[in-house]
Design a protein around this nucleic acid. Structure first.
Lengths: 210, 210, 210, 210
DNA sequence: AAGTAAGCGAGACGGTACGTCTTGTCTTTAA
DNA sequence: TTAAAGACAAGACGTACCGTCTCGCTTACTT
């Protein structure tokens, strides 16, 4: 194999700037500064100038690699959520869902990072580009993974054959986002379990008639 | 007597300015201008200056009565949603939910006003005061109304006795907001019906053992 | 005598409001408030609103009788200088000038009222109407009085026959205003005397030849 | 060596902004725009916004380098008067004074720029900082130059030995400012000559007793 | 090893909007 | 019926960020 760049789909701005002469030190400092600012002073206080200042970096450097402060935070959140990506497969779909959903809750929907995640989603309301990036880089892969796991469960007979996976995903995740974005109390781990049980009951496989 | 709040709770800034010497003409022009700007050019183009200019009003007049442009739009949205408030009571809980939920969808979650509503929710992520106002003035009354109707249904035996109303509301409305704010396709009226049926199935009253 | 108003040339706005039903109490309160504000907080802090507020008077009342805050202060200063108007006539022109000029210095060019007087003159630089009022109501009468006294001195042989009275007045008063408006130290009473002596020396009557 | 200040004293705001990365193009455009606005529409119409707009410059750029619109105009006037600075020395003090004083009259006390100069002096009545700047940067150097020339004349026997230079300067320049700021007709060149002759007569050297 | 071209820090720049202030007019309320 | 109280349109104030643009300096790829 030659030096194939092999990962062309950079999530930052793939514009003209170019190469791999990018300073990794600045890259890190920017992501960290953005995240810290958001956590410490709230999303509203995250400005490109503030990031630059705290990271000891020039504004130009930020604009060279990201189109928007939202993009910076998005990258930071993706990093954060990176660990949460995979679905486990223990054979017990309820258990696996619980594992994944509580991980999401703990990582980005409660605690200090909830602000960051909610802030990014907020920003996508006015920024179609960022909305695309959020979908492409964060949501779609995770939704796909969820559907894959659920599909497998359906095929294994743990869900009714005709189960509408889209609706199932909506019912599972919708309330989590609803509570995050409407400032309602987030689910506890226990409540997540109840929630999953309720939803799965809808799509339980044939009521096992004698 | 119904919980008619008899409208003492002004939704605008109840601060010092004072009384009812307020110009109703300006009030209207401001709400209209804000809504139009948002619909025509997007939430991002709604600035206090633009509202003032289009409404033929001075900025001071806006700041006298609202703390924030978000508060202006919130009042406009509340006005919009005002018609959607009540739950009908035909005796058929599924039907009544469908009536109310499609009204919400049509009024503020699809069409030109979706931008406005999503924009306000976005703004509440950075503005705790606005978040409070949204909750107090818009969400809480509607959630209470929904719970009241569901409670009645439970008492009439249309829902299982132990039904957790909070979770029921989460399951009903969560997916609507999830799809609005994550830029997924909104539900069609038909899909709302399916959705309601699925959710109610969870809490169906005792499997009727004759 | 009928109720002849007897003083038709009001120095305030001669506009439509007209009558003599004017509240003398408000009139006084406004003049006092304006003067106090200027003395206490500087000319810059004198706004119509501040005057109204301190005088317990509505803005409308001020605008009814004066066109400008400058006009209010002008009236106040005229009142102040009213006492200084007349020239004494002891027969000694140098002494009489000294009396008058030190009175002017003490009343409006030093002490707390210097700010007020300088401020009004400043305002006339941008306000032709006020400039006219200043000239007509304050300066011209005093210049005329000075010229009259000097003319008399010339006729009595205390000044050279061809003495240019205009230049004489310029030389006498110019330096006072120069020092006031350019923020140089004002003349002391003693220095005024020296100043007068110097200037009069120019126009001394014929050098008394044998 | 003459008191050549070698120009370390920047007349603009010497504050934090920093260096010589200043755009000379903007600098010029701002000074020109300010001066033009003042000449064309009067001092009152000179606002920072108007200057910025006409100069094609952002308000921030103005505030970065000057504390006040008055400071901008002051710099413009200083530039204007720059040419007038020096006193000639032909050996004839009356002639040299005439040269300098008519230059001042023509440059800043009559014609279109009189408004500007009078406006700045007006502004110093409410702005101590600007007053200082006016003194330090404009008046003091010129007064010093005048005194130097007069001192030399005294030493050469063209003025009486005990001549009070301060009073002499007051008498020479006072009437010019008095007429400028009190809206009286400015001196003509001929009248300046008469004026100088009169004043110098006071301090003529010993009556030449042969 | 020198040359060259990029990234980099710094920060000035033209803009836009902010939220506040004052002006002068107009309206409401109370005496 | 007058005047206080004060809301109003207008528009300048001085500040904060935006995103773009030089500057020199450093750093890492050429050749």
């Amino acid at each position: 194999m030659l030096p194939s760049p092999s990962e062309p789909s950079e999530l930052s701005q793939p514009g003209q700037p170019t190469p791999q002469r990018r300073s990794e030190k600045s890259h890190r400092a920017i992501l960290d500064a953005a995240m810290e600012l958001c956590v410490e002073h709230g999303y509203g206080k995250v400005t490109v100038e503030a990031i630059a200042s705290r990271a000891g970096v020039s504004k130009k450097t930020i604009y060279r690699w990201w189109p928007t402060k939202g993009a910076v935070l998005l990258e930071a959140v993706i990093e954060l959520a990176g660990t949460t990506t995979g679905f486990p497969d223990t054979g017990d779909i309820a258990e696996d869902l619980h594992t994944q959903m509580t991980a999401v809750l703990d990582n980005v929907m409660t605690g200090p990072h909830a602000t960051v995640y909610a802030g990014i989603i907020a920003e996508t309301q006015h920024d179609a580009t960022l909305a695309d990036a959020l979908r492409t880089q964060l949501l779609d892969p995770r939704i796909a993974a969820a559907r894959a796991r659920l599909l497998q469960a359906r095929e294994h007979g743990h869900l009714a054959p005709g189960t509408d996976l889209t609706m199932l995903v909506d019912l599972l995740y919708g309330p989590l986002y609803y509570r995050l974005l409407l400032h309602l109390a987030p689910y506890s781990h226990a409540r997540v379990r109840t929630h999953i049980d309720h939803v799965l009951r809808i799509f339980a496989p044939t009521p096992a008639s004698p």
